[in-house]
């Protein structure tokens, strides 16, 4: 059995959660609402994050193009995703929402532009 101490981030109260994992059974205590329980379970079973960064841009008014993953990627893959982002170069013009990297690191999520640069 493994136990994790977390702070819930679903609202400003910030409940101190204890999540215990025993085989397939995940139990959350310390939460005061169902959102806290869902957060606790997800954080220990499949934590994920949106990654935001910038990529090199040529031919536009800016040198860097801000980007993000369109959806969440597994937390363990954040640095792998960053490596791909660092290697990427984009040419202006770019529109907000344009795909910059397709299916980044096999996560099923694209990296998209978060700014329009003419």
């Amino acid at each position: 059995m493994q136990s994790y101490e977390l702070t819930c981030i679903q609202c400003p109260i910030g409940c101190a959660l204890t999540v215990t994992v025993d085989g397939d059974a995940v139990k959350v205590t310390g939460n005061t609402c169902p959102r806290g329980e869902a957060y606790g379970v997800k954080e220990v079973t499949a934590p994920s994050r949106t990654v935001t960064s910038t990529v090199a841009l040529t031919g536009g008014a800016l040198r860097r193009l801000p980007v993000r993953t369109a959806g969440d990627v597994p937390k363990a893959k954040i640095f792998e995703v960053m490596e791909q982002i660092k290697k990427t170069r984009v040419k202006a013009p770019v529109k907000l929402g344009d795909t910059v990297i397709e299916n980044v690191c096999g996560t099923g999520t694209d990296v998209i532009a978060t700014k329009t640069v003419k």
Partner: peptide, 10 residues
């Protein structure tokens, strides 16, 4: 929606 700063500004 959870936007980035540039998206919100745009």
């Amino acid at each position: 929606a959870e936007l980035t700063g540039p998206e919100y500004a745009e």
